[in-house]
Simulated scan of single mutants.
Amino acid sequence: MSKKMAKWFFTDFDGTLRNSRNNDLKLNPDDHQFVLNFIEKGNILAVATARPYMQIKKFLKQHYNLRPDYLICSNGSCVYDKSGNLLYDNPIPKLEQKELFDTLKKYEENVIGLIYTTINKEEVLFHKTWNEELKDAYFGMMPENKSLESLEQADILSMRIIVEENLKVQIERFAEKFRLTIGQYIFNFNDGIYIDITSIKTTKGQAIRQLQKLTKFDDKDVIVAGDDVNDFSMFEEFYENSYLIKQERNATFRSQAKKVIEQIHEIEVD
C-alpha cells in the first residue's frame, strides 16, 4: 500500500484564517481546531499574507500558538520556513522604485501613510492619522516618523501606501507605465485608499510555485483559501482545490475560486 501524501494548505490570514466575524482579532474556535487537526495528521500549513514576516510570525505564535511550516509574506515577496530561513525573495526593481518615490514626493501632501518591508525591517515610515485602532491592526507597530528620502535607497520588498484619491490616480498611471514589472493591489478602507506595491512577479500564487520547486509537492495535494483580490493568484494556480471565504466585500468576485464557504473548517480534506 502506498504512503498517503501530505496535504499542503495555503491560507490567507486576515478574513480567512482569522475570521471570527466579531472584530475581536481571534480565530473562530472551529477554524482553530481544524488547523490543529490538519497539522496533527502530518499535513503542511503555510500562511500566505500581505503582512510582513516578523510581524505575522510573532503574532501567530503569541496569540494562537501556531508555528506554520512556511510563511509567504508581503503578498508573496518572500518565503520563509519554520526555522526562519529565507527561501525566496523578490524586491521591487530599482528603476521603478525611484520613479515611484519621485511621484510620492511630488504629491507628498496626499500621502496619508506608508508602510514598508525589507529583508531586515518592517516599519510604518509615517502615518498622519495614526491611532490606537491602527496600532492594534498592525500588531503594535508605531510610525518611525521619517521622510520619504530616508527610504528611497533601500531594497524594498513591498510597500503599502495610504493615499487620497488624486494620488491614487497618479500611482495607477505609474503602475500602468510599468505594468510589465510592477504589481499593485488596491483596497478601500475607512482611513484612506490602500495601495500595495510589489514586483510584478510577486504574487502569493507565484511564491507557492517557487516553494514547490524546492519541496516538490504535487498540485493535487494543494488546498488554497483566501478572501480578497490579492488571493486571486492562488485561485488561478490551484483552482481545483480553491476556497473563497465569503465576506461582504467580495460579493462581485466569488467566482474566482471553485468553492465559496463561510469558514475554513468547512474545507474538505481527503
Rank of each mutant, 00 (worst) to 15 (best):
K201I: 02
K201V: 04
K201W: 00
K201T: 07
T202D: 02
T202S: 06
T202C: 09
T202Q: 00
T202W: 09
T203D: 06
T203R: 01
T203M: 11
T203I: 08
T203G: 09
T203N: 05
K204D: 14
K204P: 11
K204S: 15
K204C: 15
K204V: 14
K204E: 15
K204L: 15
K204H: 11
G205F: 05
G205I: 05
Q206H: 15
Q206V: 14
Q206T: 15
Q206K: 15
Q206E: 09
A207S: 14
A207L: 13
A207H: 14
A207V: 15
A207W: 09
A207G: 14
I208G: 13
I208A: 11
I208R: 06
I208D: 11
I208P: 13
I208C: 13
R209G: 11
R209S: 08
R209W: 06
R209T: 06
Q210N: 14
Q210E: 05
Q210C: 07
L211K: 08
L211H: 15
L211C: 08
L211I: 11
L211E: 15
L211P: 10
L211A: 10
Q212R: 12
Q212K: 10
Q212A: 05
Q212E: 09
Q212C: 05
Q212D: 08
K213N: 12
K213L: 05
K213D: 11
K213S: 12
L214I: 08
L214C: 01
L214F: 07
L214H: 09
L214M: 03
L214P: 08
L214K: 10
T215H: 10
T215M: 15
T215E: 11
T215Y: 05
T215A: 11
T215I: 14
K216C: 13
K216V: 14
K216R: 12
F217E: 11
F217A: 10
F217T: 04
F217K: 06
F217H: 04
F217L: 15
D218A: 04
D218L: 12
D218M: 10
D218Y: 07
D218N: 13
D219C: 12
D219R: 05
D219A: 08
D219L: 12
K220I: 07
K220M: 12
K220N: 12
K220R: 14
D221A: 07
D221C: 09
D221S: 06
D221N: 08
D221G: 08
D221K: 03
D221V: 04
D221M: 04
V222A: 01
V222L: 05
V222Q: 04
V222N: 05
I223G: 04
I223Q: 00
I223A: 00
I223F: 01
I223K: 01
I223C: 04
V224K: 03
A225I: 09
A225V: 07
G226M: 04
G226Y: 01
D227V: 07
D227T: 03
D227Y: 04
D227F: 01
D228S: 00
D228G: 06
D228E: 00
V229M: 01
V229Y: 06
V229P: 00
V229L: 02
V229N: 00
V229T: 08
N230G: 04
N230C: 00
D231K: 03
D231Q: 02
D231E: 02
D231V: 03
D231N: 05
F232N: 01
F232H: 03
F232M: 02
F232D: 01
F232P: 02
